[in-house]
Amino acid sequence: MSLMDMYVHRDTPIHRLDPRVKIILAVFLTIFCFFLSNILLLFGLFLLLQLLILSTGVSIKRYSSSLWLVGRFALIFVILWPFFDKTGETVLLDLSIYKVTLESLLRSLSLALRILVMASGWFLLLYSTTQSRLVRGLVKLGMPYDLGLSLSIALRYIPHFIETMDMIKDAQVSRGYEVDSGGPWRRVRNFIPVLIPTFVFALRTSEGISASLVSRGYGASPVRTYHRDIRVRHTDAALITLIVVSVPSAIILDLMNLISI
């Protein structure tokens, strides 16, 4: 599944937000999560983000499978944490090498929530923003257009390549190649007949893309116009201010231990 294929074809208030609002939110949340450890705040934020994400009209089935991709990591953290962090007063479970205390459990949950909040910010952005509005937002925030376009094209084709790799793998397997057997070194070697055709295919496609870009007038004019340009409305401006002010203040309050559980 492609990040770009994540776009939900709907017209909701979240979709209509200026992409910059959502980009700033995702970036701020990501930074925020490095600093913030307050579990209640994180949990509240997580719930709020889930509501916003569901309001983009994404199907619960699709969203939960995407969230699970990230959730798996979060879960592994929570499970492995007690091996490394045995400090804390309130012992919940003690198997000597695996000791769970309430304090360490909260710490691992806070870490898991940080990962989920971080991911949710990006899910919200990608579900509700088309590729061109995303690139337009990034460019207006200072990214060079060429870079923005390359980025969005890369995102568009990655799943295509993965799909092709699977197809080639199936084809090789049906011809009697054993791709998924043997020791690790053997597996790597077995994978070469899959990797090389995929690589050739990717190269061809990328040649096609550059041919297509030039044929569509890419680079013909120093300034580009935009069919539907993005414009910051009052709501967008208000939201950007809110994010830019509230997120750093929450970090400061948290670092100064002014909010506590």
Partner: peptide, 15 residues
């Protein structure tokens, strides 16, 4: 181009 896959790279038909 002969291969339509390499010339459609945006998110909507309109774009």
């Amino acid at each position: 181009l002969q291969d339509p896959e390499s010339q459609l790279f945006t998110a909507t038909v309109e774009e």
